[in-house]
Write a protein that binds this DNA or RNA. Structure first.
Lengths: 210, 210
DNA sequence: TGTACATCAGTGAACGCGCGTTCACTGATGTAC
DNA sequence: TGTACATCAGTGAACGCGCGTTCACTGATGTAC
């Protein structure tokens, strides 16, 4: 039996991604989840904390997967990362994103939507919380990026990483609209995986320049 | 004297960009603009139409500027676009974005914020309206991109353009947060123009690959 | 094994509040004859 | 030039509605002695 808490989390996740945090009311969530309205405040305390819990569940999964991919990379290079390739570093993101997509229906799209909305948030309280909790994984990933781009200094890597983040969030969060256009204009049906497979070489070339 | 209608537009623009559409109430806007609450519905009909008007004012400006940059490019190449460079095509975006920034305080950030929020919108009604009204400029820009990337077919250009859009929107809409991090972590103060100057070569390299 | 009490998961109804919108109205300016 | 009427820009107050949150309560399960 799926618990009331998880029922709420599951429906909240979908609705937040589809409509945004402010546009989704607790009444919508509890109606879809078929639970009592007051149970949200019972289990989570407030709407704000529910948003954070939804975000955290996704982030925990993906950081774990990214960490295990980084461990694999370490093993493959025998801890000597001096001749690591950017393509390898970016490629490491693929499986974790694909896993998200299998974890739940349209998981990758939902997560990227959530991530984008969290960044757009007024007082960035999710961003700050994420920086705290996930900084270790984040910084480790940056160190691989630096190892593979010896020509770029730390600040340059920082900017490029965020340019890349923008592309990933924007094109995966809005993948449905893009897929529809690709379908109608070019008669071409493209999966999430294929989008990632276009994104990674595109970003690899961008990181490699200079 | 600045008209009531413009006072509303000016304040709405700022508040929408800072907090989002749903989070900004007509009462906040009219209080800041120092006009009567009912005047929003008098001049615009509804909150939804006000959002559209704010968006349109920015889009009209930037499409006009982009068009005139494209005219310049035509003139420089004597209408023969066969050996046009990607760097030229992307560079053409710089001045229009800079103009936005001078048009109003933090104009570029505000506009990119609005653009991002419009894309995230539930039923994409702004996206559809924009496609209609600005498709001519949009398609013309795509044709330059295609001329400069003869190795890529139309669908490939389409995907790359949206990857780029994501980077621009994400990093300019969130430029303040990024600037703060760059300041504190690298002791480096970066202007909007400098961000664009990092973005353009980054994207140029990405477009050029294959 | 039985009783008493505590904790947990959940519920139904109500709370006050801020929201977008509407409406009847005012006063200034423009137009027709 | 004067009068009548129409249009325009704006206003103050109220409308009903949906929101997040709270509260007193229930019933099941767990724990202590």
């Amino acid at each position: 039996m799926i618990s009331t808490k998880d029922k709420i989390l599951n429906e909240a996740e979908k609705l937040f991604a589809e409509q945004g945090f402010a546009e989704t009311s607790l009444r919508m969530i509890t109606a879809k989840a078929d639970v009592n309205l007051a149970s949200v405040n019972y289990h989570f305390g407030s709407k704000k904390k529910l948003i954070q819990a939804v975000f955290e569940r996704f982030m925990d999964t993906i950081t774990q997967d990214i960490t295990s991919e980084m461990d694999k990379l370490d093993a493959a290079h025998g801890r000597d990362l001096s001749n690591i390739q950017i393509s390898e570093v970016l490629q490491l993101l693929k499986q974790p994103i694909k896993n998200l997509d299998q974890l739940r229906p349209d998981g990758a799209g939902v997560f990227m939507n959530l991530l984008g909305r969290s960044y757009a948030e007024t007082q960035g309280h999710i961003r700050r919380f994420a920086m705290d909790k996930y900084s270790q994984t984040f910084n480790r990933f940056i160190s691989y990026l630096q190892a593979s781009c010896p020509q770029s200094d730390a600040s340059e890597i920082f900017w490029r990483l965020h340019f890349m983040l923008g592309s990933f969030i924007f094109s995966l969060a809005g993948h449905r609209a893009l897929q529809e256009i690709a379908e109608s204009d070019f008669n071409q049906s493209v999966s999430i995986e294929q989008i990632i497979d276009k994104l990674i070489p595109f970003m690899t070339a961008a990181f490699a320049h200079n």
